[in-house]
Design a protein around this nucleic acid. Structure first.
Lengths: 341, 341
DNA sequence: ACGGTAATGACAACCGATTGCCAAACTTTG
DNA sequence: CAAAGTTTGGCAATCGGTTGTCATTACCGT
């Protein structure tokens, strides 16, 4: 191969080019750019001028190799096409970019295996990881968190920093709302068995139901997709309930569609409550009553928590758990209970 | 700092560890793993066994630095929260993962500056780039494409490989549909001025309108968000048209909401056609007539085109332009024209 | 004016792989 | 059995930075 071409035209500039131009050593250039205080101000200015002139852009690969830090953070979501994650992703993206980090977004396809292998993969190519709605076991998450900085979203494992969206408390609100409308037979349309959110919500719900003396039965599990809504709707109708609390808005919206197909009216014949207040919840037909939360903010908070771990110097008590408030947003999909058959 | 710990417990294994364990040179390990043919089969098997035993995972940073290839592809979209891109992103992600590449997803925030700087940034950290709905000038895109492999989506610049979603032809279908319903005064609710899609669509539309002897006026521009739909709806009502073709579904859905607020009925008082058939178009109220296209497939094709350039060896004529078909999907938001005032 | 401390910048090792080159070992052939 | 050809695998340079070590210089107080 040809030797180093000093006059290479379009090759991106390196610190060596700058060093040659300024007549200093490459290490001096490195220091001038990363620890300006350790270099004479005049030298530094010459170097900065040369860097600008050569359009120098540091090679992140090389930087990562020698410093051990990649400047990237992995963000794992179970399903990119689920609108719930849009705002989350935007939140992480904005916060990461603001801090000079790159976001590596990966869709784990609702699979614990993909999630585990991605985690292993990212161990070297990212400084830290944010895992949303993990499908892994507590042990696996704990082990992963021991190997590298990791923050979960909507997954509470002792010892692993987490941002929790407090849907359980909103679930109680939803139940109260339905009870106040006269509903006494209510169904919870469960999400994936491996979803901790779904489990937590069901626990809260069944306890709350007992306190209030109403019947709540669990149906499902259903995949968190609109297509699953059809099966959910049929199951709900068959079970004889007058109101449903769905694991998330996708299922709820799917139910809305199916009920309409079957000629049932919402909310007259069946009330539906969703969860997440995703894109579409406000303009579906009827508009969906749902549990809303600051999702984008959850993403930002997760990033902040992670970065606090990566750069401990920047002070501030390192929170290891943050709970995002959730509230019920009532729209048109909930109404007074139909008279009992 | 401490010297290299030969007995470091939890440090990820390197090829040197493998080499030491097998009693060969590191380069042999490298060859055994990347060009197995160049190594004795027995040696290779020993190395593979050792690699498995040590849970060896190649360091992608180091690989990138020495080989010049990063194994990553940048995907730039103007707005992650726009559902249109969900399927696109999923398409690119799946195809990239299948080929062993990592996806670097970046939201350029509808800004040409962010887009340009991201492009420059990615020049070193990605092997190639896919740019969806670029806001850059033709010149800038051409220059970027000259520096590194790049494929655009929905942006036609001579000399730059592209995947084009053929909305113009669908626009004609939409116009025919509206004309057949008796509409003669129609509006096009334009998207961003820097969007080539919007411009192309308007050109096609105004020509088609002339052929058919109907009036189509251009309103806008409107930002591609549901919030802009309110302004769009008001403008449409004020202009006295009976039907609208919107730049995309977000605007169309926003219009639906606004018209409802103002007490106007769709489609009785106003017909609306959207574009993209995004998540939500089928369950809004009324369901939206829109121009649908295989978006996920567009993402896959873009990746295939890019990878064909990255690995020219894998044969196959390298297409530099691919057009995705689009068709009109009629739902409830279009109907017979209201009688002229 | 001199010893001492601080500031400065050059040298070189290093991060973990890839890869050109070459020598040793082995196989084939005359 | 030797010459020629083919594998095989080791050495060392390289990618583009970071960082520890150390020599040099400048500035300080006395």
């Amino acid at each position: 191969m040809a030797t180093t071409q000093p006059a290479a035209v379009d090759r991106p500039a390196t610190i060596h080019d700058i060093a040659a131009l300024c007549g200093v050593a490459a290490s001096t250039v490195s220091r001038a750019l990363s620890t300006p205080d350790r270099v004479n101000i005049r030298t530094r200015q010459r170097i900065e001028a040369a860097a600008a002139q050569l359009h120098y852009i540091p090679n992140s690969q090389a930087k990562a190799l020698s410093s051990g830090r990649t400047g990237a953070v992995g963000v794992l979501v179970p399903d990119i096409t689920n609108p719930f994650y849009f705002d989350l992703i935007r939140g992480t993206q904005l916060q990461l970019k603001a801090a000079g980090y790159t976001q590596l977004l990966v869709d784990t396809e609702e699979s614990d295996e993909v999630e585990a292998s991605t985690l292993e993969q990212l161990r070297k190519s990212a400084d830290g990881i944010i895992v949303a709605a993990s499908r892994l076991t507590d042990e696996a998450l704990l082990a992963a968190a021991a190997k590298m900085p990791l923050v979960t979203i909507n997954r509470d494992v002792p010892g692993v920093p987490a941002v929790i969206i407090d849907t359980p408390s909103a679930t109680s609100q939803a139940l109260d709302h339905l009870v106040s409308l006269g509903h006494t037979r209510i169904a919870y349309m469960a999400g994936p068995l491996t979803s901790q959110s779904s489990t937590r919500r069901w626990t809260t719900l069944s306890e709350a139901a007992e306190e209030r003396g109403v019947e709540v039965r669990r149906l499902g599990p259903f995949a968190p997709k609109t297509q699953s809504g059809a099966a959910a709707a049929d199951a709900a109708v068959h079970s004889g309930v007058t109101a449903c609390i769905a694991f998330n808005d996708l299922i709820a919206i799917g139910m809305l569609q199916r009920l309409r197909e079957r000629g049932l009216r919402v909310p007259e014949d069946m009330s539906i409550v969703g969860c997440d207040d995703i894109f579409g919840a406000d303009f579906c037909n009827p508009p969906l009553s749902t549990m809303a939360s600051p999702i984008e903010q959850a993403g930002r908070v997760a990033v902040s928590m992670l970065l606090a771990r990566l750069n401990p110097l920047a002070g501030g008590g390192t929170r290891s758990r943050s709970v995002m408030p959730t509230h019920l947003t009532v729209r048109g999909s909930t109404g007074p209970a139909r008279q009992a058959l």
